[in-house]
Amino acid sequence: MSHAPVYIEIDGRPAADPELIATLQSAYGHFTAMQVRHGGVRGLGLHLDRLDGASRELFGTGVDKDHVRALMRQALRAAGRAEAAVRVYMYEGTAMVTVREPFAFDDAPQALKSVPYQRPAAHLKHLGGFGQTYHREAVRREGFDEALLTAPDGTVSEGAVTNIAFWDGASVRWPDAPALHGVTMALLEPLLGSVRGPVTLADVPSFRAAFVTNSRGIAPVSRIDETVLPGDERLMARVREAYASVEWETL
């Protein structure tokens, strides 16, 4: 049985490619986000592995990594940028690359508010993240910088768009809970000799410091809910030094 083609208008005008736009409207897909500096990306191989693994899980087939790299180079050239924030979105049979102004944490301490929410299929950087965006925007209106996602029993998993690590004075601990293991986390984890283990909101006062990571970089955490963390400049210097040692891989 044949189906009529999709018809779409945008601001009262027919869309140039309705079939493509209909595909992009689907929430069934995944993406990766990275910072590009002078044609290089930290953890590029990990980003490509992420796209390949998620595509195999969602669509049953991997991606041509060389083709994805070529698409990113093409988009950067077309945008006239050597430095940018780049995202690669994967749908079944369709890849989309976006290029924006580069982003970076300004190193200001982050205030986090816990919310009882965990992402479905948390190991994937999938589309349709309404829940995490809803909670992040809600806590920002209350004066916080980021939402800390937790299970009903208070187990900490991840931030809305970040990973979080805790410091007890002896070791760096990443929560061992369902979460997206971000590329920056994956790069830092072995360099810091860190561990994974359970962390609950009740444990937070026992930690001296915490920091968050994502494609924008690293930022210290100043407080979680009403608990103020003393912080540790030596720790943050160590974390920054480790991150700075990661080589930029050429696109």
Rank of each mutant, 00 (worst) to 15 (best):
S2C: 05
Y7L: 15
Y7N: 13
I8Y: 06
I8R: 11
E9C: 11
E9S: 10
D11K: 11
R13H: 12
A15E: 09
A16H: 11
D17R: 15
P18I: 15
E19Y: 01
L20I: 08
I21Q: 04
L24H: 00
Y28H: 10
Y28P: 03
H30F: 11
F31L: 15
F31S: 08
A33S: 14
M34W: 02
G39N: 05
G39A: 08
G40F: 08
G43E: 11
G45P: 10
H47F: 04
D49C: 13
L51K: 12
L51T: 01
L51D: 02
D52A: 10
G53L: 15
S55Q: 10
S55L: 12
F59P: 05
F59R: 06
F59V: 07
F59I: 13
G60F: 15
G60Y: 15
V63Y: 03
H67L: 13
G80E: 07
E83W: 05
A84K: 12
A84L: 09
Y89T: 13
M90P: 01
G93D: 06
G93Y: 06
T94F: 07
T94R: 15
V97W: 00
V99Q: 08
R100M: 10
E101I: 06
D106G: 13
D106F: 03
D106A: 15
K113G: 02
R119W: 01
H123R: 14
L124A: 09
G128N: 13
G128W: 15
G129Y: 00
F130Q: 14
Y134R: 15
E137K: 12
E137A: 11
T150I: 11
G154L: 08
T155W: 00
S157Y: 00
A160F: 02
N163G: 07
N163S: 10
S171T: 10
W174P: 02
A177G: 08
A179D: 04
L180R: 04
H181P: 04
G182C: 13
V183N: 03
V183I: 15
E189G: 02
L192D: 00
L192S: 04
G193R: 14
S194E: 05
R196T: 03
A202M: 11
F207T: 01
F207C: 02
A210S: 03
N214G: 04
N214T: 01
R216L: 12
G217C: 09
A219S: 13
V221R: 03
D225Y: 00
D225W: 01
V228M: 10
L229M: 09
P230M: 12
G231W: 05
D232V: 08
R234E: 11
L235K: 06
L235W: 00
R238L: 15
E241H: 10
A242L: 14
A242R: 09
Y243W: 14
S245P: 14
E247N: 02
W248C: 01
